[in-house]
Simulated assay, not measured.
Amino acid sequence: MSAVLTKDLIYEILSVVEEIPEGKVASYGQIAKLIGRDKNARLVGKVLSISGYYGKYPCHRVVNHAGRLAPHFPEQKNLLLKENVEFKDSLHVNMKKCRWDC
């Protein structure tokens, strides 16, 4: 299935991101699965990179499957630390403790 980036798809992804509770994180793949597009984790990342055009969303709560922070989002770690998200090391969230169970 080809992933065509439409406003409906963008808002579908952002509505899931909006549901991630403070102090929890979700992976790109987890969000893709929640919208029924299991193989579109990169698409989720693309949408998050342009999310500022669509409003204010807690995109800092999205990490890769291993808990690694986004490389081009320097504020992400501080935003997560303010929410008491636990880290395994300087670049990885502790996914066992902080993954959003949805």
Rank of each mutant, 00 (worst) to 15 (best):
K96N: 11
L48M: 01
Q30S: 05
H60Y: 15
E22K: 15
S51G: 08
A41S: 15
I31N: 09
A3T: 13
K97D: 04
N40T: 01
H92G: 04
G29E: 06
V93H: 02
A70E: 11
Y28F: 15
L14H: 10
P58N: 06
L34Y: 02
V25R: 01
K82H: 04
S2D: 09
V25I: 03
R42L: 15
H60L: 03
K88A: 07
G45I: 00
P71D: 13
A32F: 08
P74F: 08
Q30P: 05
N84Q: 12
S51M: 08
Y57V: 07
L9V: 12
R99K: 13
Y54S: 01
N64E: 02
D101S: 03
M1Q: 11
Y28A: 04
G29H: 03
G23I: 09
G55R: 02
P58S: 05
K56F: 09
G36F: 03
V85G: 01
C59T: 15
R99E: 03
L5Q: 09
N78M: 02
N78C: 02
A70V: 10
Y57H: 14
K39Y: 13
S27G: 07
R68S: 14
P21K: 12
A32K: 05
H72N: 14
L14T: 11
V17S: 10
R68C: 12
D8W: 00
N64T: 08
K56W: 10
K7P: 08
V44T: 05
S2V: 05
V93C: 05
I20E: 04
V4C: 10
E86N: 03
H65G: 07
K96G: 11
I10Y: 06
P21R: 14
Y53P: 00
L80K: 00
K82W: 02
I31A: 06
K77D: 00
V93D: 03
V16A: 03
S90H: 07
G45P: 00
K77R: 14
M95S: 01
Q76V: 05
N40P: 06
Y54F: 15
Y53G: 05
L69A: 14
R68T: 13
Y57M: 06
E18A: 12
A3P: 00
